[in-house]
Computed example of a mutant assay.
Amino acid sequence: MAEDFQSGWQLTESDPGVFSELLKRLGTPLVVDDLYSLDAAALSEHQPINAFIFLFKWIPTHQESMAGSYDQEFPGFFAHQVVNNACATLAVLNAIGNIPGLQMGTQLTDLIAFTTGMDPQTRGMAITSADWLREAHNALSPPSSIYLDDPDLKKTAEDAYHFIVYMPYMGALYEFDGLKDAPVTHGPYNEQGEGWVAKAREVIEARIATYPAGSLNFSLLALHEDPLPSLQKQLQELQTSGNDITASEVAERIERENNKRHRWDFENAMRRHNHFGLIHGLLLALAKGGELDAAKENAKKALAERRAKHGGADMDQD
Rank of each mutant, 00 (worst) to 15 (best):
A2R: 01
G8Q: 02
Q10K: 07
E13T: 10
P16H: 04
G17V: 03
S20L: 00
L23V: 04
R25D: 12
L30W: 07
L30A: 03
V31R: 09
Y36Q: 08
S37V: 09
L38P: 02
L38K: 06
A40L: 08
S44Y: 08
P48R: 02
F52S: 08
F52Q: 00
L55Q: 08
Q63K: 02
S65T: 02
P75S: 07
P75C: 00
N84C: 01
N85V: 03
A86W: 00
L93E: 08
G97S: 13
N98W: 02
G101M: 12
G101E: 09
Q107C: 12
L111S: 08
I112C: 09
T116F: 12
T116I: 12
T116Q: 15
G117F: 01
M118L: 14
D119C: 10
I127P: 01
L133P: 01
A136P: 00
H137R: 05
A139N: 04
S145W: 10
L148R: 06
L148Y: 09
P151G: 10
K155E: 15
I164Q: 00
V165Y: 01
P168R: 00
Y169E: 00
M170F: 12
M170C: 12
A172F: 09
F176C: 08
A182Q: 04
T185I: 02
N190L: 12
E191M: 07
G193D: 05
G195W: 05
A198R: 02
A198S: 11
R201Q: 07
I204R: 05
E205L: 13
A206D: 10
A206W: 03
A206F: 07
A206R: 08
I208Y: 02
Y211I: 06
G214E: 09
S215P: 03
F218K: 01
F218P: 01
L221F: 15
L223P: 06
E225T: 14
E225D: 15
D226N: 13
L228Q: 14
L231D: 04
E237Y: 03
L238H: 04
Q239T: 03
T240D: 05
S241K: 07
I245A: 14
S248K: 07
S248W: 05
A251R: 05
I254G: 03
E257G: 07
E257M: 11
N259L: 14
K260W: 10
R261G: 02
R261C: 06
E267S: 11
R272K: 14
F276E: 15
H280C: 15
E291W: 11
L292Y: 11
D293P: 03
A295G: 11
A304Y: 11
A304Q: 12
E305D: 15
R306I: 14
R306N: 14
A308S: 01
G311C: 05
D314S: 12
M315L: 14
M315I: 09
Q317V: 04
